[in-house]
Amino acid sequence: MNLTIFIIVLVVYLLATIFLGYLGWKRTKNASDFMVGGRKTHPYVMAISYGATFISTSAIVGFGGQAANLGMGLLWLAFLNILLGIFVAFIFFGKKTRLIGANLDAHTFPEFLGKRYDSRAIQRIGGIVVFIFMPMYAGAVLIGAARFIEESLKLQFVWALVIYTVIIAIYVFAGGIKGVMYTDTLQGTIMLGGMGALLILTYVKLGGFVSAHKALTDLASKFPAALAKGGGQGWTTMPVLGSPIWWTVVSAIILGVGIGVLAQPQLAVRFMMVKSNKELNRAVLIGGIFILMMTGVAFVVGALSNVYFFREAGKIAVDVVEKGNVDLIIPAYINAAMPPWFVYLFMITLLAAAMSTSSGQLHAMGTSFGRDVFSRSKYSADYKEEKSTKGIVSTRIGILIGVIVSFVLGYFLPISIVARATSLFFGLCAATFLPMYILGLFWKRANKAGALAGMITGIVTSVFWMFFVHEANSKIIGIVTAMTGKTSLLGAPWKSMDSIVIAFPLAFIVTLIVTLCTKPMPKETVDKAFKKEEIAISK
């Protein structure tokens, strides 16, 4: 790769990004613009922005590497991502969220939940959860991007981290959600082009669709011995039903879909950015294609890279990279198998994937601080503050604090904790927000007492489980070892279960029981949230 050409391509891309951030700044007149884009976002922009925020670099490189190791059975995850993450999310969650969000004048996800249950406490606690725990997740994405820049530009790590963080902070700070959405659209479109080209070039390289898959099937005898012993049967076959490797694949699929995705504040808020259900219906078309081209292509190309490496080097993918680190497989494959022009495109694709995820996180942290923690929301009846500029300054302060905390966490936290940050945050969001979000959308009887009880249960159970039981986390955090000398308070199978498997169902049950034991909410509060439903849903 020629570094000069890459730097030219990179500078052009960054200039375009900064210009779009400037455009967002020019078009931001009030707090509603800064937080929800004035609720008038174009469906293509909304769908691509949702998808690009959803998919980070680790999804492309990490998922691709996993498929190179475990095989194409992981495609069930891509299927569930599209079905739940797009189809169900947009049509069932999105429409209701947009309607209630517009009725109650909500600008953030915690505010949406707070107003649905008429509880400032829910909004504040939600804002605190986002503002305290999201920086760790944001830090993990910052680190991933900085490592990548360090490698590709031969920069010192700390400078790579500073440059990356500052560029994103500038356009999120200045342009608000419009700056984020415009840049997301550029970044998402680059991602579509990059992954589309990767799929086509891979099939061409391997002699066509049928030949590539047949070659991969014929490679089954070369499947890693350790995996074959655990029940793996090759890259185009599922592992033996019920075998250890089968469980590895299935739990990766179930946790990867992460019901956590449905309750991500930076994703849910995007449903409130469109004008009507018409835009959401159109966004489904774009969103479905986008996620297929990201996770679907990553899994297929990752698995097929084995054919290329075996033909060229006589080794399978996991034996080509050093120490069998699966995260290095996709970059190694791109560098070895793809034409030079594509290497540049793919580098920008990975950078775009990271930037679009980081920007959504920073914006969510900023609004949580400026809007939710120090709640400025009006809970009175008919107040609409669509034209007010109140809250922009405090949100910008929140963005700055969020940037600094994420940067510091990313720089100082040990790599083992950073690697767990994404799943920790997804698990916590699912347990904290999802029970009352689902019930609040589809059950008019849902009330404040139940929502608060479930929220507290979810937070306490998640944190306890992460720190004291789930061995993958508790071992690294180390508190339980310091206190008891053991790595987990409970034995198998509990210690291998992710917190989401325990905390989310428990919080859901508590929400239900407490709701049924307490009075319903006043009829007018509920009617206000759901008004015009009959007209809006049928559109």
Binding site: L75, F87, K278, N281, G288
Partner: peptide
Amino acid sequence: GVSVFLAYLFCILVTLLCVIYGAVMWNKDK
């Protein structure tokens, strides 16, 4: 082996579902 083939197929089918739903609604909402 069939279940992996089905995973590939279902990925394409669910995307088609999204595309067809979006296109039909687009036409309807015009």
